[in-house]
Design a protein around this nucleic acid. Structure first.
Lengths: 344, 344
DNA sequence: AAATGAAATGTAAGCGCTTACAAAAAATCC
DNA sequence: GGATTTTTTGTAAGCGCTTACATTTCATTT
């Protein structure tokens, strides 16, 4: 026997002295096989170091026990915690996870979805709702089970998310309550990102409600990166009437802004208040701690996994899961300074 | 035509009025097909929304255009940058990446490797060298192309890594040069982690070389998490003769230690010096900046991808790539305090 | 002990694709 | 123009596995 060749089902069958069907059953539905033959087969499997070939199995059974997730980016920790929980819950159910990233690009997202479907993903996790009709149509056409996370989806969608508008509005209200009137935003890029857009809308809504002009809100759109936040902060503070509070679209931007403010000689929150969104690890590590919106990413990831698995099984379920967020006060948000001459 | 069913190669062939072989060639080796028929085929593909079935393809071609990576953890950023680069380089070559995590557990690593091989991964990336003989044997037996990263492997291995011992020794020498004599370490858990073990060995070597007792080095082994570093720091500083410098096994521990020190009322580096390892994002964000070993993760990831792809193609290549590290001074390492009464 | 039914096992037909080989068509040469 | 080479396309045999169905085995009943 050629030891270097991968053993196949046939080989196992021959060694165990049974048919291929029996070996297959032994591996997939052990109950349908006598304990005696099962033993023989399993020891043959062990002896040969047999590992079933995924392609063959997928082809024959039309099941891959694999789901895919297309996330915008792996570059920072935004999606890490939620995805980790998602993966853990899937693993529990014996399902594998394939992760792909789109770079916030609609074409790439579509391509990745196609690839995942081609790989036979039994279901797919997508982030947010912003995608072209074409992509939606593709998903619908092949009836691919699909769960949307991180956002509240439409009535036709299955989603496990949170209300970005309401959460942003809540933290903006908090900022306003601290007496801030000149408020600016450092946001993620809103193209193909409904979360970023929703958070801006939420802040505008809070301003409007407080009798402040929502159009007056200066928004810097940048990539989610520490240094980009710094550049944006410098631009904002160079204005003739710089803001006294900056609401950041997420914690990467928030932490970047805090660091940049400090390097600019500003004291947070005395001179300038800064808030974030997500409550990832580093929000608690910077000095001062970042006041932010806590998103229970793990809970969301677990719920998303459950929803997707149920959907694949065709079981009845909650098609709409809304996750509550909360505000964590850490110190980067404080009262508006009396004099507003800073930065002039 | 049933629109809900996934179109197959046959369907495309029928619509385009050619044979299945032509369609297949069109997709895989477009050069071998007239531009005229290629056009016809591609428009049929487009019209049907055809996506090749991965299982079928893998089965027939015995190639999956997929490689796997088993990394110890996805929970923190340690492997993120390198893996991202690895993935990008693979994508360039049209190869997909499957990521699995082992949680620093030998059994889980072995299981993940088997799963990846079963899925037909054309090759595998592993982190470090610490694994049982059984796992090695499995890899060797099925001649799975395999590259080791993050460490210097054995002569029989193909690796793209750096010398953890030398790098740790270098930064320890730097610490000693600053006058520190009471030095402690907060290390990752060394079981199944040759990088962590190597870094301790490097520090011991530097101590020894400087005429200090390597056995005297107090090492706290903890998981790579911010708060674990804090707990370890408190334990270290509670000793009758607390260290004046703490060398941390990586930046997660280093940053955690800086934050914990600050919360303990210690000024870094005046009261206590702290160093890290890796040079990830947050090392530059904490106050003071973390003095650390810079590891060119991206370069390592790219080189690892190249090595693995070459290995899969069977091309001659560098089997041993050694990546140079350097020390980045940021401020968390300073001269040893004159009086050493701190913490007593 | 023969008849009956249930449980265990075997047989063989694909799953959707690639690819060696054969056949046909087009391009080149004398 | 026919012979030869080159390029393009088609035919058909698997790749390794699952599973419907057929067959065998074995326990149970009469």
């Amino acid at each position: 026997m050629d030891v270097s060749a991968k053993p196949k089902l046939d080989d196992v069958a021959r060694v165990a002295g049974v048919s291929t069907a029996t070996v297959s059953r032994c591996l997939n539905e052990p109950a349908k096989v006598t304990s005696k033959t099962r033993e023989r087969v399993l020891s043959a499997v062990e002896a040969l170091g047999y590992t079933p070939n995924f392609g063959g199995r997928a082809l024959a059974s039309r099941k891959t026990h694999t789901v895919g997730a297309v996330i915008p980016t792996m570059e920072n920790a935004i999606f890490a915690r939620g995805l980790q929980a998602f993966q853990e819950a899937l693993a529990e159910a014996g399902v594998n996870l394939l992760v792909a990233s789109s770079g916030y690009d609609a074409e790439r997202e579509a391509a990745q979805i196609r690839a995942l479907v081609g790989r036979g993903a039994d279901g797919i996790l997508l982030i947010g709702t912003a995608r072209p009709e074409k992509t939606r149509a593709f998903l619908k056409r092949f009836a691919t089970p699909c769960v949307i996370a991180w956002s509240i989806g439409g009535p036709g969608d299955v989603y496990v998310g949170f209300d970005n508008v309401a959460a942003a509005r809540a933290i903006a209200e908090r900022v306003i309550a601290f007496g801030h009137r000149r408020i600016a935003m450092i946001s993620g890029i809103t193209a193909m990102n409904d979360r970023a857009a929703g958070r801006i809308a939420g802040v505008r809504a809070a301003l409007s409600e407080a009798g402040l002009s929502p159009e007056g809100l200066v928004v810097e759109e940048v990539r989610y990166a520490f240094d980009e936040a710094g550049v944006a902060l410098h631009r904002l503070m160079a204005a003739p009437e710089p803001p006294t509070a900056i609401i950041c679209g997420n914690d990467v931007l928030g932490v970047g802004a805090i660091v940049a403010a400090r390097r600019r000689g500003l004291t947070v929150p005395c001179d300038l208040s800064i808030t974030g969104f997500d409550d990832i690890d580093i929000a608690a590590l910077v000095e001062p701690g970042l006041t932010t919106v806590h998103v229970p990413h793990r809970r969301m990831g677990l719920a998303a996994a459950k929803a997707l698995l149920d959907l694949i099984e065709g079981q009845p379920q909650d098609r709409h899961v809304s996750i509550e967020t909360s505000i964590i006060e850490r110190g980067s948000l404080g009262p508006a300074p009396r004099s507003s001459s800073i930065g002039r």
